[in-house]
């Protein structure tokens, strides 16, 4: 049978339907019930000598002085600490909104005397005058600087029709000269250091630097390896941190939209 390509295309188009997410106007897409979002630390004081969560963390993201500190910028979101803690002090919520403007806000602290779980880390808005300039058109050059390619894959997803980041005027462009900023993934390997610096210099000012994933923020699983630089901040100033290993596409999109004061 002879089929005409046009008819087949139309037929497939009808079958595949309209599938772009309604978010942020509508609800975010449902996440797995096992999704590990923002970590929360209960305020109940821990036993003095208990260091189980600290020693279970593969990357040293948890510190205990008087209280517990959990650094989302280092966290691999593996949940080893939850398994290790006998008291249920640490748990991971379903909250996907993790992006922050400054590094310090990524640290979650156990607070004394407050009965509620700490939800204050994200801050009310990421908006500044700089990001306002890019509100309706935001072009990014992506630089993959080491790492495992999972963050890149979940950035790529944002360009597919399901997420369609172009709806918001956000787009990945081929050249730094066409970009308003760079979105960096990976811990910045020694071998990518020069390329990252050159790409940054090629972006016209004012320019934005976004670090996506625990590698780009702190070195991730490769923290303190001599072959890498423990993240982007060691070389250039970062304006937006999006933690995760890798961050869910929803976390990245939400971070970008909040950065642009779009939600």
């Amino acid at each position: 049978m002879i089929t005409t390509p046009l008819l087949s295309i139309l037929k497939a188009r009808a079958k595949q339907k309209y599938r772009t997410l309604q978010y942020p106007k509508g609800n975010p897409p449902p996440l797995s019930d096992r999704f590990l979002g923002k970590p929360l630390i209960a305020s109940t004081p821990c036993p003095m000598d208990c260091l189980l969560c600290v020693s279970s963390c593969p990357i040293g993201a948890i510190q205990k002085k008087e209280f517990l500190h959990l650094d989302m910028g280092r966290c691999l979101f593996c949940g080893a600490c939850v398994e290790a803690c006998p008291n249920g002090t640490i748990r991971f919520s379903k909250d996907f909104q993790l992006a922050t403007r400054d590094r310090e806000s990524l640290v979650i602290r156990q607070r004394e005397g407050s009965e509620t779980l700490d939800k204050s880390i994200v801050g009310s808005t990421l908006w500044t005058n700089i990001s306002r300039k890019f509100r309706r058109s935001f072009r990014l050059r992506q630089v993959s600087a080491g790492g495992c390619n999972a963050c890149e894959a979940d950035c790529n997803v944002l360009s597919t029709i399901a997420w369609d980041m172009g709806r918001f005027g956000i787009q990945f462009v081929a050249s730094p000269r066409h970009a308003d900023g760079i979105l960096v993934t990976g811990p910045v390997t020694e071998n990518m250091k020069v390329a990252l610096e050159k790409t940054y210099q090629a972006v016209p000012s004012p320019k934005v630097v976004i670090a996506v994933g625990s590698c780009a923020i702190s070195g991730g699983p490769y923290k303190d390896h001599p072959e890498q630089k423990n993240g982007v901040s060691s070389l250039i100033p970062v304006d937006l941190f999006i933690p995760g290993c890798p961050p869910h596409p929803l976390t990245i999109l939400e971070g970008l939209l909040r950065f642009l004061d779009r939600i």
Binding site: G146, G147, P221, Y222, H225
Partner: peptide, 22 residues
């Protein structure tokens, strides 16, 4: 080589808590 981040070297001496993440 641009992605070289020393994983094989770091796996030496393991297994430890980081190994599975490597």
């Amino acid at each position: 080589g641009y992605q070289h981040r020393g994983v094989e070297r770091a796996l030496t001496g393991g297994p430890n808590e980081r190994s599975i993440h490597y």
